[in-house]
Simulated assay, not measured.
Amino acid sequence: MADTDLALSVDRFMRRIHSALQARAAEFDTENVGPAGGMLLLTLAEMGQPEIHELTARFARDKSQMTRVIGMLETKGLVTKRPSQRDQRASVVLLTPKGHRVVAELSTALAEAIETLVAPLNTDERQVLKTLMARIA
């Protein structure tokens, strides 16, 4: 049976992260990518050069939704598309140098937001949390 208390705790933590980022968005979201664009940029930094269908599966979105977000990021010069070497009918999406800079800004803002939330934890507790997060992520 699912652990509802755990689910609600994780949800509360995620909402607190989201709220902390939203409150500071004007400071770091200089390209106005918003939450969807930010998540896609961070995911591209993690995945490398995924095909669009891999991104739609990762985000549980349909192709048209993903294409819109990718198009917005492409217009801003943060990502580019090119044909997949594996399947010429498919496109891969990759970060541009400007996109990498924005990812660095987003990563810093995310780290600062989470730092505030985990401030009550001591060094050992933080290490346990980090280990557990790495295991489930």
Score class of each variant (00 low, 15 high):
39 M>Q: 09
93 V>T: 14
69 V>L: 03
50 P>N: 06
87 D>M: 07
40 L>H: 13
101 R>K: 10
102 V>E: 14
77 G>I: 05
24 R>G: 08
21 L>V: 06
97 P>A: 04
57 A>P: 07
34 G>T: 12
46 E>T: 11
88 Q>N: 11
104 A>F: 00
46 E>N: 05
91 S>M: 13
97 P>N: 07
48 G>F: 00
52 I>S: 09
85 Q>Y: 11
80 T>K: 10
45 A>L: 03
96 T>E: 10
79 V>M: 07
37 G>V: 03
77 G>T: 05
109 A>K: 11
33 V>K: 01
35 P>C: 05
70 I>D: 10
102 V>Y: 02
22 Q>I: 01
40 L>S: 11
37 G>D: 04
25 A>M: 10
83 P>A: 14
95 L>P: 14
42 L>G: 13
58 R>C: 03
83 P>Q: 14
69 V>Q: 08
71 G>L: 04
49 Q>A: 07
52 I>V: 15
43 T>A: 13
89 R>P: 01
69 V>A: 01
25 A>Y: 04
89 R>C: 01
44 L>A: 09
58 R>D: 10
82 R>W: 06
85 Q>V: 08
53 H>D: 14
91 S>I: 00
43 T>L: 01
63 K>E: 12
63 K>Y: 12
21 L>G: 01
102 V>T: 15
103 V>C: 12
32 N>I: 00
40 L>C: 12
67 T>C: 06
46 E>C: 03
71 G>M: 06
62 D>C: 05
97 P>R: 02
111 A>P: 00
79 V>K: 01
97 P>Q: 02
83 P>V: 09
26 A>I: 11
80 T>W: 00
68 R>W: 09
90 A>G: 01
34 G>A: 07
104 A>V: 04
71 G>E: 14
105 E>L: 08
100 H>G: 03
49 Q>S: 13
94 L>R: 03
30 T>V: 13
48 G>W: 01
113 A>Y: 06
77 G>Y: 06
97 P>L: 02
82 R>E: 15
62 D>W: 03
71 G>Q: 10
90 A>N: 10
73 L>V: 07
94 L>W: 00
85 Q>K: 12
108 T>I: 03
30 T>W: 04
56 T>F: 01
109 A>R: 11
90 A>M: 12
112 E>T: 07
54 E>C: 01
75 T>I: 02
29 D>H: 09
51 E>G: 11
67 T>E: 14
39 M>Y: 00
110 L>E: 10
51 E>R: 15
26 A>Q: 15
41 L>Y: 06
51 E>Y: 00
25 A>V: 09
59 F>L: 04
112 E>H: 13
27 E>P: 09
63 K>Q: 13
107 S>Y: 00
91 S>Q: 13
56 T>Q: 02
102 V>G: 01
21 L>N: 02
44 L>K: 02
92 V>A: 02
111 A>D: 14
76 K>A: 15
53 H>G: 05
